[in-house]
Design a protein around this nucleic acid. Sequence first.
DNA 1: GTCTATATGCCGATAGAC
DNA 2: GTCTATCGGCATATAGAC
Lengths: 212, 212
Amino acid sequence: MAQTASKKTGKRSQAVNAKKEAILSAALNTFSQFGIHGTRLEQVAEQAGVSKTNLLYYYPSKEALYVAVMRNILDIWLAPLRAFREEFAPLEAIGEYIRLKLEVSRDHPQASRLFCLEMLQGAPLLMAELTGDLKSLVDDKSAIISAWVKEGKLAPVDPNHLIFMIWATTQHYADFSTQVEAVTGKTLRDGEFFQQTVESVQRMIIEGIRLR
Amino acid sequence: MAQTASKKTGKRSQAVNAKKEAILSAALNTFSQFGIHGTRLEQVAEQAGVSKTNLLYYYPSKEALYVAVMRNILDIWLAPLRAFREEFAPLEAIGEYIRLKLEVSRDHPQASRLFCLEMLQGAPLLMAELTGDLKSLVDDKSAIISAWVKEGKLAPVDPNHLIFMIWATTQHYADFSTQVEAVTGKTLRDGEFFQQTVESVQRMIIEGIRLR
DNA sequence: GTCTATATGCCGATAGAC
DNA sequence: GTCTATCGGCATATAGAC
């Protein structure tokens, strides 16, 4: 009844928010594996421990649910790039960025996969954010990298391609985890493999593969 | 009537094969964008210039069509790795491999995307190939790279992680082309951008980003 | 808020004429 | 081989009692 509650940690009883969270989490799981059309609401409801009707009470339509999920994961995906700072030394900053992104791949693989899925479809929902927030964020960070190159602190690289390479490589361990597992028999959840992956990726990107 | 024709370039009239090709091509287009569940057979039929019923005459079910498409693209995807030879100098072989994979991203982006889609779902259809053909192929090439490292021809890198990085980075330009375009305003079909991408990726992987 | 029906529309697949 | 017509099932969404 009382809709007067604030949005965050509102009086609208912990239970309601918990339920919405459970639904979002379950939805992320299935959406990221089967896509929008491949998921059945009943499946989501079951996984969240609610009835299908009840789910539709909180999220009035499948698409509304999908949008809610997408909103949630955007922040997860962008957080590491936001944390990228020019105060650090170039190689440390980039090494740290690689670690953070790999942690996202380890801790939020479904978010990474859903993001990938949306991309494959041409990002019908995210287009605005891509050409707005993301682009200006990337432009910012690219400028930092360009400055480093100009100051002679970094080998002459194209900032955009460097960022793409870091994105691609780190997300690969989440999006293609099936393939990674088929080839290596390991997952990022394996602590040792995770550490080895971080170091390998950091070294390859920073040092390259040419013998010196 | 005459089903006696051979399978390839058979007497079964060019027209039939051409039609099946058109259907496969259209199917690849829509499957790669919307996934199996997101595509409607009518859409595929229309794009291929046939009726929905006619499509179902040639491919008895949606799943059969999907499988046929997947079979076709596997070879495209694997071709560059198969072409990877130890006869060349290490850095040339790897540079060439990068170029070939980027050409696939440019010339067959839909195949790359469908492959990605299948991966995201856990590769229900490709699992056998992943743990069989692909794994042994990767093991082969990894052994070559390992030998190069041992012989002091390459910096000490983990072969699997190197292969993953090359896969991820090159496929990124196909799978995330929406994002690439949003950020750079360019596509691989832009000849200049393609050339610049090949050189950037080659240099970053081979030289790294540390100033020398 | 949560439930049990039930309405509604879409889409894969089939029947059968030609 | 290709068409028109239609079936049948499934899944989203709603109605309405409690």
